[in-house]
Nucleic acid binder design. Structure first.
Lengths: 140, 140
DNA sequence: GGTCTAGGTTGTAAAGTGCAACTTGGTGGC
DNA sequence: GCCACCAAGTTGCACTTTACAACCTAGACC
């Protein structure tokens, strides 16, 4: 097998390995929110405001699933919904104060865990790794 | 926020994004097997033989979950079980001929998809990306 | 206006998962 | 040898996540 294929296999295996354990770790890190729900909240924050359809497209989830998760986030008081003034069919989602606080807390805890994990990485290595992942992710 | 923390945030976000979509893509690529079930079969192949407890430890899953997935794999004829001669409590799992064939097919399809995705990456970039992922995964 | 499309919601069913209780087989103290 | 304890798996149970389908409402286009 060519080196390139061997490297691609390694990439596939490692990414899959990460996915397998992600849920478990996410549950430890954010006991109150599932990985997907947390990610949705995070995306809503990143975008400032977005519609449920955007979430469905981004996460490759059915709109019904998104609808339920969004309902859950609203019941938890982490996001607010308002009808889109430009299109009454949709609704605009925004993070609430509590939602932003939760995200900030989670980011801090996450960063602490990550700092520890990457102690023996140089800044250059981290930057390149992040660059590769971003490049890979852009192909999704 | 320091550059290093920004890069760590990007790494976390991209890895999580991958995890979110992994199941969906896995379902497309292996319609008959879930991501976890497929991964279990793959690990059994990698190890040659292993016990259910090994799978539970590796995937951070409850032994009951593993028990059910292993039962499913056996019903599909993809693995075989035999009592461990050295410890009658456990059982040794092996991939069957069908299981090996399925893994080979999946690896081939996966490789094709990956080749396409990485067409505009240089060999060096791919090798470095794989190296970073392996290094990251080693910390698990 | 009528038809078609898009965003969301709800009903339903299936799969994955963890916890707890249980069975069986090994280990170690007495 | 016997009894208590631990380890590997299995099963019952409840909960969560998810997709598909049917439906409702609101724009879009003719």
């Amino acid at each position: 097998m060519p080196d390139r294929d061997a490297a691609l296999d390694a990439i596939q295996r490692e990414l899959t390995a990460f996915a397998r354990r992600a849920r478990h770790k996410a549950a430890q890190m954010h006991p109150d929110l599932s990985l997907v729900t947390y990610s949705m909240l995070d995306l809503v924050k990143e975008r400032g405001s977005c519609r449920a359809a955007d979430l469905a497209a981004h996460f490759m989830l059915d709109k019904s699933t998104v609808s339920r998760q969004v309902t859950a986030l609203e019941k938890l008081g982490l996001i607010t919904r308002e009808p889109d003034p430009e299109d009454q069919r949709g609704q605009l989602l925004h993070p609430s104060e509590d939602g932003l606080r939760l995200l900030a807390d989670a980011a801090e805890r996450r960063r602490l865990a990550f700092r520890e994990r990457f102690t023996d990485w140089t800044d250059d290595d981290i930057a390149r790794f992040a660059g590769y992942l971003t490049r890979y992710g852009a192909g999704d």
